[in-house]
Write a protein that binds this DNA or RNA. Structure first.
Lengths: 134, 134
DNA sequence: TCTAAAAAGACAATTTTTATCTTTTTATTG
DNA sequence: CAATAAAAAGATAAAAATTGTCTTTTTAGA
C-alpha cells in the first residue's frame, strides 16, 4: 500500500532532471522524456499539471520548452507529488469525516491524521535542490 | 495518494469490532459483516487472510466463527493493514533498488525510506485495544 | 447423516492507471 | 504572412487493480 504510481515516479524524475539543468536553460519535453526514460506523451500531461500551478514555466513555439517555475530550493518534493497525485490522504475519513458514519467515535481517524502529517513533513523537508545537487 | 483501499478499511472495521467483543466470544462472520456494514463475502476473504497469519482464529461448523488470535493489546494496526494491503512501500525502488536504474545516485530513495519508517512507526504504535477500548 | 460455518477457487463488474493519437493554440523565423 | 516548432487540450483505448459475487469444498457439531 501507499505506493507512488508511475505517474508520480515519472513526475519526480522529470522535474528533478529539469532542476539539475543549468538555470534558465529551456528544455524540450522530448529531451527530458528521453533522458529520464518516460513516454513523452505521458510526461507531457504531467508537465501540463506542473505548469498550471507554476511549478514549471512553459514556452511554446520554436525555442520553446520548460524551465523551473521557481528556484530549485523553493520547490519541495511534497508539492511535486501532490501536483500529480493529489493530496496525501491515507484514509477517506481524514478528509470527509461525514463519510465515516462511525465519525464521532472513530478512534482510527486521528491515527491516519498522524500518518498524513508525518508523510507530509518528510516530503516537505526535501527540495528539488536536495535531489538534483551533485 | 497513499490511500487505504476499501479492503483495508473493511479489514480494520472488522477486526476492531472483533476486538471490542467480550474475550473468547466467538463471532459469526455474517454478524461482524452486518455490524460493520461490509459485504459478507468480501469480509470473508479478508478474515481468511487474517486467519492465515494468526491474527484471528477461526472455527468451522456449528457454533463456529472467529475470535482474536492474540490479546487485543498485542495486535498492532500495522499488522492488520499489512495483512491485507501488503507491505507499506511508498516507492518500488525502496524494496527493489535494482528496478531503479538510477539506483546508486538516486537521491529520492532515502526519502521514501524515511516515509516508510515514519508510517510504520505510527501504525505500529497503535493496538487494537487502543482502537476498541471504551 | 444433516446442518452450520469457514475455506478455497473461479469468475465478473467497475474503477483506476497508463498510456496514445489527434487537433488546437501559441510563438518564432524566414 | 507563411511555414514551422513546440506545448496545450481533448478524446480514446488498453491494461491492471479493485471490489465484489457465486459455487464448491472442507471441517465440525448435533
Amino acid at each position: 500500500m501507499m505506493e507512488l504510481t508511475r505517474k508520480g515516479e515519472y513526475a519526480i524524475r522529470g522535474i528533478v532532471y529539469l532542476a539539475a539543468q543549468p538555470e534558465d536553460r529551456v528544455c524540450l519535453l522530448s529531451d527530458i522524456a528521453a533522458a529520464v526514460d518516460v513516454p513523452p506523451t505521458f510526461l507531457a500531461k504531467i508537465f501540463q499539471q506542473f505548469s498550471k500551478i507554476g511549478l514549471v514555466k512553459s514556452y511554446r513555439g520554436t525555442g520553446g520548452g520548460f524551465v523551473l517555475g521557481r528556484a530549485s530550493d523553493k520547490i519541495t518534493l511534497l508539492e511535486v507529488v501532490e501536483a500529480v497525485e493529489g493530496q496525501i490522504i491515507p484514509n477517506r475519513c481524514v478528509v470527509t469525516p461525514s463519510e465515516c458514519s462511525r465519525d464521532v467515535f472513530c478512534k482510527v481517524h486521528p491515527v491516519w491524521k498522524r500518518v498524513q502529517i508525518q508523510v507530509r513533513d518528510v516530503l516537505e523537508g526535501v527540495t528539488l535542490k536536495d535531489l538534483s545537487g551533485a
